[in-house]
């Protein structure tokens, strides 16, 4: 799928996780990225940058990913947020979806799953 003028926000405290996510997406799509290193920064950047898609980790310092989803959804109920985490327990998944996340990707990252999730978000666009 060809994506044009798409901006993606990645919120993860790990520089490696952000790089791997960026590299995997950039291998298939020509998009621009903005990066946040904690939940609070992700909220602030979302409001400033209005990205088309957000990937958020759950376990982050300052403010965790689920709280960040809630606050982003309050600011923009149409936000497209995907959780990417190693902590894919049923309760975390439930909390993330209830907070407004659209999907959940369990780490370690699977490139095909990631592509399927991105394509599903931008289908018909």
């Amino acid at each position: 799928m060809k994506l044009e003028n798409v901006k993606i926000l990645i919120g993860d405290d790990s520089i490696l996780a952000r790089k791997q996510l960026k590299d995997t997406i950039a291998a298939s799509y020509d998009v621009t990225f903005v990066e946040a290193v904690n939940g609070q920064e992700a909220i602030d950047l979302y409001k400033a940058e209005k990205p088309d898609l957000v990937f958020l980790d759950i376990v982050m310092p300052v403010k965790d990913g689920i709280t960040a989803v809630s606050e982003i959804m309050q600011a923009d109920p149409s936000a497209n947020i995907i959780m990417v985490s190693s902590v894919g327990t049923q309760s975390q998944l439930k909390m993330a979806i209830e907070a407004g996340a659209k999907d959940f990707i369990q780490k370690p990252l699977d490139a095909e799953q990631l592509k399927a999730v991105i394509n599903a978000r931008f289908e018909g666009r």
Binding site: V59, S86, V87, T89, K107, P108
Partner: peptide, 10 residues
Amino acid sequence: LNLHNGLFNV
């Protein structure tokens, strides 16, 4: 370590 502990929690 985060991945391992996360998988343990799962």
